[in-house]
Design a binder for these strands. Structure first.
Lengths: 147, 147
DNA sequence: GTGACTTACTTTCAGAATGGTAGTATTGTT
DNA sequence: AACAATACTACCATTCTGAAAGTAAGTCAC
């Protein structure tokens, strides 16, 4: 996919996808939220080839979703931490998960809990103002013209 | 990406990504929610190569997110309509958009409105039970073992 | 201090996926 | 008859991906 539908696109969905629009990146972000920080942790968790992992971690760092930090000088070792932007990706992960649970359920499914309170989290999307659940109503997209 | 982290994976996020984990599919779903139904509408809106569009529409139809319907016999013409599963993808789109708006904002951005009431929609994710906003707290993933 | 081990990668390369252009099939319109 | 619209397919060059192996810097066991 080229850049036409991404960086300078007025659609915020397209912009997001330009940053983290591939499956590996989203899975890395998921694992980062689950507490993983190191190259080999991600590699083992995902079963991803090291070439891909290097590229994806570099891209996510470049985009400002992860931060590379040296946690040991001798030997030199790096870890990847979520930035504020990366942490705010969590609602997206929850909604993706909620959809998958609903439509691709069956069998044993991984569940998500608040790491502090221990309560299970089931996310739904609501309108910020009215609090109405966002559901099946069609939307209208309005793009401001360039003039 | 192979199937290991997708179809039989207990993680609902991985399952979702196996179905609609690429940028084109998500953009097609976005346009479908905005009311587009026909091959050429998608092609022009997205600037996608026809080969890609054919493949993506077929995949989304196969997965049950879109439904192919003949709307004219002479000449034979098809359109693609959202299924219930496809319509329920809308919250995911909104959260992706909300993130993009927050972190890739600047310039003129496309905004989303309820097609019926005309009010602007700004989506946030909350916990279904407590109603608490899902934010920056770390989560804990619990995968049931196979035994 | 030699060999095994750990971590975080890079190199190489075959094969799959993608994107661009052009062409096809069926029908309606003038 | 010529042209346009719609919904594709064929072909092909380029790019991306995945798998295996190798590398570099250092630690640890004895």
């Amino acid at each position: 996919m080229d850049n036409e539908n991404s960086c300078d696109n007025p659609c915020p969905i397209a912009r997001s996808l330009a940053v983290a629009g591939d499956a590996w990146s989203i899975l890395i972000l998921r694992d980062a939220h689950a507490g993983l920080t190191r190259f080999d942790q991600f590699r083992k968790s995902l079963g991803i080839a090291p070439t891909m992992l290097t590229r994806r971690l570099a891209a996510l760092t470049e985009e400002g979703l992860l931060e590379k930090r040296r946690y040991s000088e001798h030997p030199p070792r790096e870890e990847y931490l979520l930035t504020a932007a990366g942490r705010d990706f969590l609602p997206v992960l929850f909604m993706i998960g909620a959809w998958g649970r609903q439509y691709r359920g069956g069998g044993k499914l991984t569940r998500f809990f608040d790491a502090e309170t221990g309560t299970e989290i089931k996310a739904i999307a609501v309108d910020e103002v009215t609090g109405a659940k966002i559901g099946t109503r069609p939307m209208r997209m309005v793009t401001p013209d360039e003039s």
